[in-house]
């Protein structure tokens, strides 16, 4: 079976599961089901974006939590001012998602542009350390923002509003998040197979060859980095609306590490693998936290095992196989 078909098949199965799961869970008396699924979908959006640059570009960003937090904070802070009746540079503010979300995404794109430009001057270990360091800077800046709650974070009085969709309704919110995930995965898939994507992937496989074909690496890598930042920012926006709460914890190195772990667990360079990774990781987290508050004692060694033995991840072998003779 060709790779295209495997991708389509896996994607459809996943989509069917994610559509049906809340309905099935609603038949039981488990109230945590829909929130859990919502978290999985939001995380999936972030890690699919991360997979775009790690799996296809070998750009191991250890700082993607900075975009996750920035997306959330922009939305929460603007909402805060609007509700306080403040004006923001003479603008009375809004609660409309159609305005706030693009603004937040723009902020993520700008941060991605600056951090990416600096970090992409290097490769490998330096790239990892630099992305981590800038994320930590964002974390410290968020902590220092006493006006917006500092360490404690900032509550959102309500979710953003959207015409004809009730974001306050958990069902509507879940299916909106799922729709965004589907659109984003299709967009990433388009990019990967595009003329841009061909060059971007060539840079990972042999930078020397690509350069000697006339390719200037930086603009390609930077473009992908910014796209990835925007996707992760969108996840942050959804998270802020889901939790109705943003804290500097969204920007911690541990969050960035979690994203890395999920991508690897699911399968690098597959786009769909990380979604499965998110489901397993978040699900496991849920189970372990119920079992013991010291769940890291289990999760830690699991990460070690994933690193040591999980070469292809859960779906890597299947999704990357079946192509070429």
């Amino acid at each position: 079976m060709s790779r295209f078909n495997r991708f389509t098949l896996t994607g459809l199965v996943m989509l069917a599961l994610l559509i049906i799961a809340p309905v099935v869970i609603a038949q039981t008396d488990w109230s945590g089901g829909l929130p859990l699924l919502t978290r999985i979908v939001i995380y999936a959006l972030a890690v699919v974006s991360l997979d775009l640059i790690i799996g296809y570009g070998a750009l191991v960003s250890f700082g993607h939590a900075m975009f996750f937090s920035l997306g959330g904070y922009v939305v929460a802070v603007l909402l805060h001012h609007t509700n306080m009746g403040d004006t923001i540079f003479g603008w009375e503010g809004t609660n409309s998602a159609l305005l706030l979300w693009p603004l937040a995404l723009l902020a993520c794109a700008l941060l991605g542009l600056v951090v990416g430009y600096l970090a992409l001057k290097t490769r490998g270990v330096q790239f990892i350390m630099i992305t981590l360091a800038f994320a930590q800077m964002v974390y410290f800046v968020l902590v220092s923002l006493q006006y917006y709650g500092g360490d404690d974070g900032l509550m959102m009085d309500m979710r953003n509003t959207m015409p004809s969709i009730q974001l306050d309704d958990p069902w509507a919110f879940y299916y909106l998040a799922l729709t965004l995930l589907v659109v984003w995965v299709l967009f990433c898939r388009l990019i990967v197979n595009s003329r841009f994507g061909l060059v971007f992937q060539a840079l990972r496989q042999s930078e020397r060859r690509a350069v000697n074909l006339g390719v200037n690496p930086l603009p390609f890598r930077l473009t992908a980095f910014v796209i990835s930042a925007v996707g992760t920012g969108l996840a942050g926006i959804l998270w802020a609306n889901y939790a109705e709460f943003v804290t500097p914890d969204m920007a911690t190195w541990a969050k960035s590490g979690e994203f890395l772990a999920i991508v690897t667990l699911g399968g690098l360079g597959t786009l769909l693998g990380p979604i499965a990774g998110a489901a397993v990781f978040i699900g496991l987290e849920q189970i372990l936290t119920i079992w013991t508050e010291h769940w890291m004692i289990v999760m830690g060694p699991m990460l070690v095992l994933i690193a040591l033995f999980g070469q292809q991840g859960m779906l890597g072998r299947y999704l990357k196989g079946g192509r070429h003779d």
């Binding site: 388009l190 595009s194 003329r195 841009f196 060059v199 390719v215 200037n216 390609f220 473009t223």
Partner: peptide
């Protein structure tokens, strides 16, 4: 496809 240094077309599949 890289004659001019590669394309930033995110949609078209050169294949």
């Amino acid at each position: 496809d890289c004659m001019e240094g590669g394309s930033f077309n995110l949609v078209a599949n050169p294949r």
